[in-house]
Design a protein around this nucleic acid. Sequence first.
DNA 1: CCTTGACTTCGAGTGCACTCACAGTCGTAG
DNA 2: CTACGACTGTGAGTGCACTCGAAGTCAAGG
Lengths: 137, 137
Amino acid sequence: MDVPLSISEVSELLGITAHTARYYERAGLLTIDRSQSGHRIYDRKTVERLDFLVRMRTSGMGISELSRYVDLVRDGDSTTEERLQIMLAQRERIRTQIRELERALDTTEYKIATYGGAPTTSTTSSAIDHEPEGTSS
Amino acid sequence: MDVPLSISEVSELLGITAHTARYYERAGLLTIDRSQSGHRIYDRKTVERLDFLVRMRTSGMGISELSRYVDLVRDGDSTTEERLQIMLAQRERIRTQIRELERALDTTEYKIATYGGAPTTSTTSSAIDHEPEGTSS
DNA sequence: CCTTGACTTCGAGTGCACTCACAGTCGTAG
DNA sequence: CTACGACTGTGAGTGCACTCGAAGTCAAGG
């Protein structure tokens, strides 16, 4: 269980395209070893790095900020304070997103109940349907 | 408590810019009444519609799909089945996003603990630090 | 009367993150 | 020996959702 993977294998594993994996490398987010023939070889450690990058991206961190973070890691222990700040900001972003998504989920569930629960009851669709809760800030 | 709002008031209330509110209208997602002088007037119902649109957008529904949904609502009761399908798909998207965000949150918390908990312990940063969990599919 | 500020329309511009095209290379299967 | 499929680098293109700019209108204050 430590067989190096090809770019197509690793991209499928992580749910991205091979194009995207190459793009991240071009953007300086990580470097990947090559085989004798020039093909990228992803070992366990490299896969984990890429997985981390994908997680940060899918949770809303931009490429430029991620790039900054990667540079800080390369620069060593003196940069941990700024790295901490980046991760604290990222945590807040994620928490905010989760809160928004849960609100949107409530709204969506309500719509589903309206459409799925009532078998064509009519007297609907006056607006974009009626909303469950008022619009409080 | 049913005073109509201006575009600047409603956009601040909903956390978007006035530009974006106008853009949604231009995209056909909703229509807004005008005052005698031509300014947009948002009443309670209109604010709720816009709030719904914003929630769907922030949870990943694209403008074109949202536009389709709005058209279906306009077309009346015969379209509830397709509207249900759209909302079911939306629910799945949201659930997937929440799952991904929670994974990203775990990763972020781990980094914070590493930087915040360990006061410059050294012997770190061999990769982009060590990951808490293995990369399982 | 004149300025100020918030609004109007509408075409055009921006930023981001991919995503693609193309020409070339490599290793194995037939 | 040659065809195939998966890979390579890199410049250019795409799609989306805003975001801006410019010119104009309007109501109220000094």
